[in-house]
Design a protein around this nucleic acid. Structure first.
Lengths: 346, 346
DNA sequence: TGAAATTGCTAACACGTGTTAGCAAGCGTC
DNA sequence: GACGCTTGCTAACACGTGTTAGCAATTTCA
């Protein structure tokens, strides 16, 4: 089938016996133009008859706005792979955007091609603004874009840069997790990070862990800290290393449920039981956390809200030139399941 | 900061001392137009100096093609929520699209608003074509769109409709899983579906299960079949019910890893051990399958390829008017881990 | 030397819409 | 009866680009 000619506003005008301008006024409900009810109905009828749909491209051309926001995923491959709540973030983002008539252009950065210039999204006017997840601080492209005044919102913090962002309260969440273990009576608490400390979120979670220790008068012991790398495999290795330390920690805070999955396996392989031999608390509350063995106590991360708030911030920036709150930290909460218990009496 | 005026090709032309037409020819590398090397360099230099970026909207206006494909997610909320490999599908889709210079517009259908007309994506020319995941057969909008000749590719089959689709070989995968259990020596094999049978994929997996039984000369026993509903919770209930049947099945094929997670928990709660008391095989091979207890033997579903192939099919349809293969079934393979063993000698 | 071909460039149209300025007719007012 | 006001509509411009047709200058050829 050959592609049919598009039905334009001109065709509608012809059928209704009016000018194209009138068609535009009627269909856009322009109120300050006087259109008689009679011609209004004629136009609407003609549009219905011809199955007319206004061309979004032409509309963007003349209005200067695309009503599209770009969602750029700058995560490393492992991270994106392990990022089980990406769908949730995307969902929140889309719904917030849709509510205001915006669409979402999805732009992941392919792993083998790190210098894809996503800045073209704005420069070539594919989108009105960008939400960028997983910003890296060596991202020259990003900083330049921001200097040029492009509307940007980050998901995840970037230190020493005044780009608006929305993020989880990593410090608060990590402190909450650690305090929970302390309150259970633990004094020797290990930490496995979610990723290397070059990732802001990892450093923040470590910081929250230390704050909680300090507040309880417990010494920070570097030998109890190991580093994950997004994957269950890295969690397995980190926990295996931690199990060599003597005396053993009685509890471990694993700053990512996905990494915790590997830690669980390492503990099983060592013949220890959770929580009787060792307590474990996670971070993220992935959808499956409640169905692990044992069900994992963890810090819930508001993935949907993360996307929603990012979109809201960007759209506010787009609609008005008003200064918007430059950042927003989302609260976490603890989900108590069965992986934590008081330490065994020694 | 007021929004700066856009730099247009006209500005570049002025600076280079040539016409706008020439600028267009140079920047688009139009070969059959004779442009001297000297002016070519002048234009390139001017464009560089002004940081010129061609306006995608204007370009779409004149070429008539948006170079954007829509990805519509029509899944039910529970399904989308449990769909742990959506990121993978999206990744494959994006990479295939990017390779040919296309972008991806992400359009989930909000659960509370099922009749959002995603057909507007095509009619209003936001996109050149649509990839739709999780088609429902009562979707009038979809059928009309197809009748109107809109370029469509489905992820997931729709019975009795000739819309091009790409799907997993559910029947083959389910047969493979069941045959594996039979080959281990099992004769009494249960089935927990991934979803109600109104979903094509569920019906197909049931069908593959029956084929394998039949080929081995085993009777199909309806009392050994239970129905999941995407979630771990539904898997828990289905398995709990199955554990009431006497004699117990010695193995169960759970047609979704996510559902299998609940089944695992039910078996644990019943005080049985896997695989010594009962064998379990899953479907999907979610990223975490290898880190469950025990590591789950399962059928790998090529999520990345699903997205990739869908995009390839759509783009081929868009680039040429040639008839493309109307559908494509992707092969699965079995990933052997530790949740299956021969049945206990009775 | 004149005609024909080639080289290097440009004017002008088209894409489909939103919107401003303005026009004709009808109506009321002094 | 002339003037102004309201009503209802339209002509024309602008958005920024790709592309066709064609034009002037130069070179080639007989």
């Amino acid at each position: 089938m050959a592609t049919r000619k598009r039905v334009t506003a001109q065709d509608v005008a012809r059928l209704a016996g009016v000018s194209r301008t009138t068609v535009s006024f009627v269909l856009n409900n322009v109120t300050d133009m006087r259109i008689s009810e009679e011609t209004r109905q004629k136009v609407l009828e003609a549009a219905r008859l011809l199955n007319y749909h206004p061309d979004a491209v032409a509309r963007r051309m003349v209005t200067g706005r695309t009503r599209v926001v770009g969602f750029v995923l700058r995560q490393s491959p492992e991270q994106a792979f392990a990022d089980l709540f990406l769908p949730q973030v995307l969902n929140g983002l889309s719904q917030a955007a849709a509510r205001q008539g915006y669409q979402v252009l999805f732009e992941p950065i392919p792993p083998d091609q790190p210098n894809t210039m996503y800045s073209r999204l704005v420069n070539e006017r594919h989108v009105d603004g960008i939400i960028l997840s997983g910003p890296r601080f060596d991202d020259e492209d990003l900083l330049r874009l921001h200097r040029e005044g492009a509307p940007l919102v980050l998901i995840g913090r970037l230190p020493d840069v005044e780009i608006p962002y929305v993020d989880v309260d990593n410090i608060g969440g990590a402190r909450m997790a650690t305090e929970y273990l302390i309150q259970k009576g633990h004094r020797r608490i290990g930490l496995i990070t979610n990723a290397p400390l070059s990732y802001t979120a990892s450093a923040e979670r470590l910081s929250g862990y230390r704050q909680a220790l300090e507040a309880a008068g417990l010494a920070f012991d570097e030998t109890l800290v190991r580093y994950g790398n997004f994957t269950p495999h890295s969690g397995y290795q980190a926990m295996a290393a931690l199990l060599q330390v003597r005396p053993l920690p009685t509890a471990v805070f694993v700053a990512s449920d996905t990494v915790a999955l590997g830690a669980l396996q390492a503990i099983r392989h060592a013949g220890l039981r959770i929580p009787s031999d060792i307590s474990l608390i996670g971070f993220d509350d992935i959808p499956l956390a409640g169905f692990l063995d044992p069900p994992l106590t963890t810090i819930h991360l508001p993935a949907f809200n993360l996307g929603w708030e990012a979109a809201e911030m960007l759209l506010q920036r787009l609609s008005a030139e008003e200064a918007t709150p430059p950042y927003r930290l989302l609260a976490t909460h603890l989900v108590e399941r069965e992986s934590c218990a008081p330490p065994r009496k020694s």
